[in-house]
Amino acid sequence: MIKPYPLQFQPEFKERVWGGRALEQFGLDIPEGHIGEGWMIADHPNGTTTVMNGDLKDLGLDQVREQFGQEWFGSKGFSEINGRFPLLIKLLDCNDDLSIQVHPTDDYEGLPQGELGKTEMWYVLDAKPGSKIIYGLNNGVTRESLQLAIANGTITDSLREVPVEAGDTFYIPSGTVHALCAGVVVAEIQQNSDTTYRLYDYNRPGLDGKPRDLHIEDSLNVIAYEGSGATMMKTDTAIPGEWLQLAKSPYFIVEKGIVSGAWSLTTTPASFAILVICEGQGRLNWDGGSLDYKAGQCFLLPANLLQYTLEGNATVLRSYLP
């Protein structure tokens, strides 16, 4: 019998026209090219991460899910729509502006078979001075006015720009028009989905030299014009040894914690927990083992791991199912 232990995965890296080399700052061995996304914990047809430590080394997250089921992932640990792991954890390097985009809900009829909608959240790990994001529409924008702005090439006049700095967090429910902009590195916790509808892409060529597809009709259909429930917050009020809630949705709860010394914690039978190390370093201990951690690493803690301790000096995100 294999005892539960924290799982670390070999990331799946994705080249993107807006990507760069910033993920190297975490010591990640990224491939050549414009690397925009590191899929750190993934169980999706477009990318599945492989365990790189312990008894389950070399198994994909999908294989772990199939073999250990609710015992390891918790009674809530599966998507009711497709049976897969319900979350996707990424690190994003925005060396250039991302497309203006929006994500659908689970029940949007245009979704590919078996795909989920996408509600997500960002935690800003690094931001160059003057960095910004697109976060929602300006007041009064309707489907009709947005459609006209797209046709006239004036869509950017309809978009809300927000300045960002490290430590800011943004909750992005499906239906929120949004885009990360150049100079930002973020951790992203999201539903396990790879569906994005692009409204505008700055008329630039993609990696193949051709313009990337836009999805105007789908985008106009799924935008929440009256507001999606998006919220943003500064997180410098976090204090050592206490969790500060950053986002709560039907799909995930995300909290920020400051490790200073030793912090005893526990998982619950209902849900796995995911740790994203934002800053610092230390040691993760549990019944039967320990491992060192550092910024940029992500760990999947099985629901039946129960007691564990974080030691060191670090900033950590903890995600689990509501």
Rank of each mutant, 00 (worst) to 15 (best):
Q191F: 02
S131W: 06
I189N: 07
I172H: 07
L159R: 01
K132E: 11
N139P: 15
T154D: 02
D107Q: 12
K90D: 10
R160G: 01
N95M: 14
T196V: 06
E120K: 01
V141S: 06
T195Q: 06
L98G: 13
P163T: 09
T142G: 05
K57T: 15
K57H: 15
V184S: 14
V64Y: 08
A166T: 09
D106F: 01
L159K: 02
E80I: 00
A187P: 13
V124Q: 08
L137I: 11
P173F: 06
W72C: 08
R65L: 10
G69C: 04
D96C: 14
F85S: 00
R84G: 00
G69E: 03
I100V: 09
A179L: 08
G167N: 07
Q63R: 12
L125V: 14
E71A: 11
L87W: 03
K118Q: 04
E165L: 08
V184T: 14
E165Y: 04
I100N: 04
L98I: 11
G69F: 05
N82L: 00
P86R: 02
T156F: 11
E120N: 03
T196K: 04
W122D: 12
L91G: 12
Q191R: 04
S99Y: 00
W72F: 09
L98E: 10
L61V: 08
M121T: 04
F85M: 00
Y197A: 00
D126V: 15
N192E: 01
S174F: 08
D96S: 15
G130A: 06
Y197W: 03
D93I: 15
G167R: 03
K128D: 09
L88V: 09
G153D: 01
T156I: 11
G114Q: 03
V102M: 03
V186A: 15
K132V: 08
E144I: 11
D97W: 06
Y171G: 10
G69R: 07
V185Q: 11
Q70P: 12
E80G: 00
N152E: 08
G69N: 07
E71Q: 13
G136P: 03
T154W: 02
P112S: 05
V64W: 05
D157W: 03
Y135M: 09
E66P: 00
Q113L: 05
E120Y: 04
S75E: 13
W72N: 04
K132S: 10
N138K: 12
T176N: 09
L116S: 01
V124T: 06
R160P: 00
K132C: 10
S174A: 11
D194S: 10
W72Y: 07
R65Y: 08
R198D: 02
M121V: 03
T169W: 14
A149H: 01
L146A: 02
D96E: 15
Q190R: 04
D126L: 15
T195E: 03
Y171V: 11
G140C: 10
G117Y: 00
D96V: 13
V162F: 07
K132W: 14
N138A: 13
D62M: 02
D194R: 10
Y171R: 06
T105I: 11
T169D: 09
L92I: 15
G114F: 06
L98A: 12
S158A: 09
G110L: 06
T105A: 15
S99A: 07
P112R: 09
S79M: 00
V185W: 11
